[in-house]
Design a protein around this nucleic acid. Structure first.
Lengths: 149, 149
DNA sequence: CTCTTGTTGAAAGTAGTTTTCACTTTCAGA
DNA sequence: TCTGAAAGTGAAAACTACTTTCAACAAGAG
């Protein structure tokens, strides 16, 4: 999941912030996972790279990443799920309902839908949040294999 | 926000559950608000109808409503926001970023987008979650009035 | 080197939610 | 109408996720 360390470092520097060992560990852990993570999971993953890391620092780093806009939050209709690094400027996510792997896609023509919604509700639409759920290729394959064994 | 009390009562009965005074208060409060509510806000609103209501019961009622499928959760990209009654079988929400009022719309042709996402990611799409943010008619009017006073 | 400012982890604190528990309500069946 | 079983209740305790506080540490500028 392309999370551009250089870009993050530059953004940090521009705000007088530093790219510390701890922050780097969090960033790398975040960039390295195929699924979205909870703060605690991220903490555990980052700890393998930097064992003296504290949970507090993870939360603080997430806050900073949020400000920079390098963080995406993955939701489901039921729960708030987890955290992902932002890669593409405008992308949406698909979460696998079986294994939790997250993929991004850029195809997004919500203009039509937005226009219809505006007509229906009278709201002036300024932003949208779209997230799909499904089965990733692996899980889909596994599932159909099970059905016809 | 049409929340069909009769329907909820029937669903409850079908599971051997009861529509108590407290549950009714929660349901009515939920049905009565134009914005989405947090559990605490819902508790306060429902208390005006049933002052001896406890917060615990609100959570328990929400759980039950969730099971029945009579509850919709409103999210934003950043935070998990609040709770809404389900009205239409399949509807999405628009939240006003200024005042928080929520409206529903039914226009939803995500087939095109789903197909494109499937092509891009290889996932088999099973579900979608779409939510728009914007300005409701009132807030939009107020805003343009301010700009040209 | 040293001053300034950002950064850190542990521990304390807070908020939201769930669990526990003793008591109450409802309702089907005697 | 009673009665017993099962659902439901609120208050308080417990739990979990997150934030704040604080004293110590690290890093770059001068």
């Amino acid at each position: 999941m392309a999370l551009d360390l250089q870009h993050v470092a530059a953004e940090l520097a521009a705000r007088g912030l530093r790219l510390t060992r701890q922050r780097r560990a969090v960033l790398e852990a975040l960039a390295d996972t195929p699924s979205s993570l909870s703060p605690l999971q991220l903490y555990e993953a980052a700890r393998e790279r930097c064992p003296e890391l504290g949970l507090t620092t993870v939360y603080r780093t997430l806050e900073v990443l949020d400000e920079i806009g390098a963080l995406r939050r993955v939701h489901g209709p039921d729960h708030c799920e987890g955290l992902m690094p932002v890669s593409a400027a405008h992308a949406h996510t698909v979460v696998c309902s079986a294994c939790g792997r997250v993929a991004e896609f850029t195809a997004c023509d919500v203009r039509r839908i937005s226009a219809a919604a505006a007509r229906e509700t009278g709201y002036r639409i300024t932003d949208h949040f779209l997230q799909l759920t499904g089965l990733c290729d692996r899980c889909a394959a596994r599932r159909s294999a099970k059905r016809r064994p």
